[in-house]
C-alpha cells in the first residue's frame, strides 16, 4: 500500500443535536482494498460511511477523495461523484419497488444519461455475474432478501465505481446468503479494482476484508495499522 490513499478522512466531528456521532474519526482507504468498519451499535459507523461518501458533511475535519475536498464541492458535484465514482449497498429496501430488477440495476447508468438499451444490456451482464440473471424481469417484491441484495450489489457495481460503500449489506440475511453476497461483492470488487468500505458488526462478514477499522464512541482505531 504505497500508493496515495484514494479516500482520506481526517479528524471528523459530526453531531446530531447534542449527540456526537463522530468525535475525531480518521481513516484512509487505498485503491482496491476492502476495509471493514466495525464497532458496536450507535458507535457512529453509518455516520462515518455517510461522511466518506459525501452524503453527510462533517461539522469539522476534511474528507478528500482523489485529493479533492468533498466539503468544497457543491451538492450537484457530490451527487455526480456519487453517481460515477461510488456505489452503494444498504441493508435493505434500496430497490425501487415499481421497477424490475433489470431496470433497478440499469438505473445508475440511466441517471448518467446512458441510453436505455445500452444501460439494460450492461445491467443484464451484471445480473449474470451476480448469478441472478433469472430475476431480470421480476420486481423486487417478488424476490427473496438474498436475491434482492445481490441485485443491489449488481446495481452498486454497474457503473464500475472506484469505491463501493456497503452498510450492513448482509444485515438482513441468513449466514449462507450473507456469505454468498459477500463472496460475490468482494470478488466483483476485486475484479473491477474497486475499493470497498464495509460497515458490519459481523466478524464473519468482516473476514472478507483486508483490514478493519474499529469505531468506538465516534473515534476510530485502526488496529491493523497500529500493530
Amino acid at each position: 500500500m504505497t500508493a496515495a490513499p484514494l479516500l482520506e478522512a481526517d479528524d471528523l466531528h459530526r453531531s446530531f443535536g447534542a449527540t456526537p456521532a463522530l468525535d475525531g474519526a480518521t481513516m484512509r482507504v487505498w485503491p482496491g482494498e476492502v476495509v471493514a468498519v466495525m464497532g458496536s451499535s450507535g458507535s457512529g459507523k453509518s455516520t462515518l460511511l455517510h461522511c466518506l461518501a459525501g452524503i453527510l458533511l462533517p461539522d469539522s475535519g476534511v474528507v478528500t477523495y482523489g485529493g479533492r475536498d468533498l466539503s468544497a464541492m457543491s451538492e450537484t458535484e457530490r451527487s455526480a461523484l456519487r453517481r460515477t465514482d461510488f456505489g452503494f449497498v444498504f441493508q435493505f429496501g434500496q430497490l425501487v419497488p415499481e421497477l424490475t430488477c433489470l431496470e433497478n440495476v440499469a438505473l445508475p447508468l440511466r441517471l448518467e444519461r446512458i441510453r436505455r438499451g445500452e444501460a439494460e444490456r450492461r445491467a443484464a451482464e451484471w445480473l449474470e455475474r451476480l448469478e441472478v440473471a433469472d430475476l431480470a424481469r421480476k420486481r423486487p417484491g417478488e424476490t427473496s432478501g438474498g436475491q434482492a441484495q445481490r441485485v443491489a450489489v449488481a446495481r452498486a457495481l454497474v457503473t464500475r465505481p472506484r469505491v463501493v460503500f456497503a452498510d450492513e449489506p448482509t444485515g438482513a440475511l441468513d449466514s449462507l446468503n450473507g456469505e454468498k453476497v459477500m463472496r460475490l461483492l468482494t470478488q466483483a470488487a476485486r475484479e473491477t479494482a474497486a475499493a470497498v468500505v464495509l460497515v458490519t458488526h459481523e466478524a464473519r462478514v468482516a473476514g472478507y476484508s483486508d483490514r478493519e477499522v474499529v469505531v468506538r464512541d465516534g473515534r476510530t482505531r485502526d488496529l491493523t495499522r497500529a500493530s
Binding site: 464473519r204 468482516a206 473476514g207 472478507y208 476484508s209 478493519e212 474499529v214 491493523t224
Partner: peptide, 20 residues
C-alpha cells in the same frame, strides 16, 4: 481493558481473514 479487547479482536480477525 478496551485496548486489550481491540488487540485481541484484531488478532481474531486476522485469523478469520486467513480462514476466509
Amino acid at each position: 481493558a478496551a485496548d486489550l479487547l481491540d488487540v485481541q479482536r484484531a488478532e481474531h480477525l486476522r485469523h478469520m481473514r486467513e480462514l476466509t
